[in-house]
Design a binder for these strands. Sequence first.
DNA 1: TCGAAAGCCATTTTT
DNA 2: TGGCTTTCGA
Length: 828
Amino acid sequence: MTELPPAGAWAEDLLDGLNPPQRAAVEYRGPALLVVAGAGSGKTRVLTHRIAGLIRSREAWPSQILAITFTNKAAREMRERVEQLLGGVADGMWISTFHSACVRILRREAERFGFVSSFTIYDSADSRALLKRIIKDREADAYGLTPGGVAAVISKAKNELMDAESFARNANSADPRQALTAEIFSEYSRELNRAHAMDFDDLIAQTVHLFRAFPEVAAVYQRRFRHILVDEYQDTNHAQYALIRELTRPVEPEALARAGIEPRGGETDAQGRIPPASLTVVGDSDQSIYAFRGADIRNIVEFERDFPGASVVLLEQNYRSTQNILSAANAVIENNFDRPQKKLWTAVAGGELITGYTGYSQHDEAQFVADEIERLHGEGFDYRDIAVFYRTNAQTRALEEIFIRSAVPYRVLGGTKFYERAEVKDVLAYLIAVANPFDEYSLRRILNTPKRGIGPATEAQLAAYAAGEGISLREALRHAARLGLGPKLTAAIAGLSALLDEASELAFGKQLPSGGAVPPRPPVEVLQHLLEGSDYLAQLRASRDPQDEARAENVEELVSVARDFGRANPEGTLVDFLTEVSLVAAADELDDESGSVALMTLHTAKGLEFRAVFLTGLEEGLLPHQMSAGEPGGLAEERRLFYVGITRARERLYLTLAMTRAQYGDVDVALPSRFLQEIPAELIAWRQSPAEANGRGGTSSRALNASSRQLGRSPGFARSAVSGGPGGAGSVAFRPEAEPASGGMRDSLQRFREARAGGASWPNTVGSGIRDNGELELAAGDRVRHEDYGEGRVAAVTGVGSKRIAHVDFDGVGRKKLLVKIAPISRI
DNA sequence: TCGAAAGCCATTTTT
DNA sequence: TGGCTTTCGA
């Protein structure tokens, strides 16, 4: 800490420029504060100023602050902003995510529950791989149990602080699937314990269990953290809520005694207790989008009941978006009933209208986005100021294809994550095998990667030997010579074992007999030693498989990640590096310097803001997603997701959709999202409305010409829709029929159409029926009649199945290309 | 023991 | 559609 200004004088500049409720939140002193912060209402500002105020006024040392954020990036930013306000480095402040904070505590206390402090953190893919093996061993797949399904059940249980035992107690043993799930759960837990490993949910749950089992451990943290601040409180689950409750308990004298803590003067109250920490939570129930992950909206709704004496501050003034964007957001969210009344407003009126666009295909939509990004760029928007959001990761494909073609610089956040790639996992497995010798799975993974002739048979022999001797697999490797294997094999095993031992010496240092010590080397050196000793990278480079080149690049990328880590954390150990790598979130990858457009899911977008935002794929079945239809509250959560997306935009908002969407290689007709209708029509300027894209609404010819131009440049569409056809797809014209759809539509869409059958002039609507010509067989020479173009002769049919394109020479309007499945045509 | 081919399967959101 | 597993052949 650098010098502090005199106490009392702190307030002035920290309160400067804050509105009254923001001020109140910064100045509040008391047991508990709930800040209901609408989107863009300056809650980060409130949090950072509040922390800085506490420190500057000397009400708290930095080390007494615990601030929980949703992502590591948010944590980093918050730390920077606090330090900026304080004018110096604030050491000892804990600003981190729930998971990072818990790992820190758990590593410190690991031995109390029998783990090494370098325990492994399993990500969801690791959990699933382990579950898959257990399910296969037990032939539980015969009961329809899938790794993903069981993982979800276990995750849910852990978020409710249930362990395998209590899960088994609550399971209905008459139901074989539940009984089996309980068995799998307990074996899964056993295996994690054996490997000294925890999954994501364990990190939180075990910390809670630790605090409950060891009050003297809890006392240390309860005493230390005097001010606890939690951001995005609406997305906390039960385990996280329980953790906060544990941390905000008063410390009883007995616990102090057991912990051997001698309270300082003024630290305790009349009963000799240390009073509970002051708690500040910030959240917005309208932005709760993680119910599927166990987030419990009641945590925020019932805050005042949970923490008696709590104050509530409402932040409703938005400093981010234009009035038009806010009006749209308000109009949408108002459709969620059963929410506390709250309305965002801004002092800045007007702004540009929201732009709408309906593409003929997802590629047409993507092309519009790409063109519009270039236009914005020409207008002075930096690429980094622009973001494209979508509901599902699968939607990136079309966008990426077009962006590459159009030379739009972009980066995809999340999705197929870097750390989930096989080669990256391989290399990490080497590091984990070094850090945690009990982690058999990592060791098994690298046993024969790269190939050294240690196949499943040898692996089984090693495992059997380890089991027989009661030693770890890692130890068994050191005794390779005793297994009576061939000389080549024995040498390979001994070589790997020696390599790991050398790396371990590098990672942890070494005591010398002389009494001196060799200090540990940074993680990047450990990594490089392993890569050289294992020949892993060299073999990838030497491979003639072109994909291996990309894999080698990824491995090199990991090396540079390790190098960067070393620069940022000169004291960082191998375990620190592995922890950081395990806990990166999608939004953490966002690099503001990169100068490229950000592509991400709506979930990842939470907490971020951009000058211009594209919300894509606004179609029924995608947003709201069809999977959400069956879940209670699913529709409301989808609407909040839409709301979150809208409110990320500062100046420009684009709402786009496509009339057809290819899924699993099949083209489906899409309907505009019902949420689009919730935005007042006068706020949206449709560049091409759903009605126009449909051929309805009187401007169809113009719309179609536009589409022809766009589609002609759309290589993705050309590839997927008219395989091999030169020059792309050309215009794909279709329009809905007046008669009812001939089947194939999903139930939800059916209901949606019926629900809106009354409203006629809404620009977002599609006609009341979608044609499905699925079975219509056409051949060159056939005469057809089209509703708009009249009669014509089929020149050729290209494509297959639902993507068949009829090239028709119309008597009146010339050559047109039509998507047979949905074009309003009939053979005559 | 390995590589290629063929079938199979799944597709919501994530710390 | 493509990613993944299984299977088959060498």
